[in-house]
Design a protein around this nucleic acid. Sequence first.
DNA 1: TTAATATATTCGCATACTTGAATATATTAA
DNA 2: TTAATATATTCAAGTATGCGAATATATTAA
Lengths: 119, 119
Amino acid sequence: MPSRAIVAKELSQVLKTISHPDRVRIIEELRGQEKDVNTIAEALELTATRISQHLSLMKAHRIVDERREGRHHYYHLVQPEIADWIVNGLAFVEGRMSAVSAAEIKSARKLWGAVPVQK
Amino acid sequence: MPSRAIVAKELSQVLKTISHPDRVRIIEELRGQEKDVNTIAEALELTATRISQHLSLMKAHRIVDERREGRHHYYHLVQPEIADWIVNGLAFVEGRMSAVSAAEIKSARKLWGAVPVQK
DNA sequence: TTAATATATTCGCATACTTGAATATATTAA
DNA sequence: TTAATATATTCAAGTATGCGAATATATTAA
């Protein structure tokens, strides 16, 4: 298989792993800081089980990694820049939604962008 | 639904649409220029039917658009910058593969990056 | 008109993903 | 030890995706 095809396959695998509404949001939650399962679940108003499932999948694909401390499992992005990359991807979303939603995108971007950047 | 969730959903939809090895490659083929189905099929060594199916899906999701001229259907990226964004995404792939493959990523990036940028 | 070319659409099956519910495990508190 | 907390894993059913083969449509050439 030619190298371009190999790389495309790997990249598409990464894209596939993050292309779920919950997972996009989880990645943004982890922008610049680690968080435990419950904290994420509360922030996104989803069950801890579901968050755990998503994190388990993303860990298997090395998008996130885990640090255990007592009964808390803290997750962080293996490559913190991926969150910035996703924020850049919002640019493509802007032109795709209604004017009303476009305003929401800007506010979402502001919110996400406002989180302290990870070293 | 809060705005962040809406935006995340839309973005994940875009990601999902492009997260297929063939489709990543098609987008890169369309970087900076329109091409017809057969041209793409030959370049990627895939059947025209398959390329047509991918393009049809991406068109439905407004990733690409079509211009018909005679019996040729030329496709182009609705948002040409998406190709650049994908090239940036290669950065995340580099750390994920073996050293040998990492070299291939660089060459792939060089190849893709060498294509003239669309205005 | 007929044939050839270029592409699209439909079909069907195999595979994969999503998700809540139930169950299991690890850690700390009583 | 026992109970409570935090998270993980398994299961099963519903849904979606991928893909080749067959068929259909549009355009141009003969």
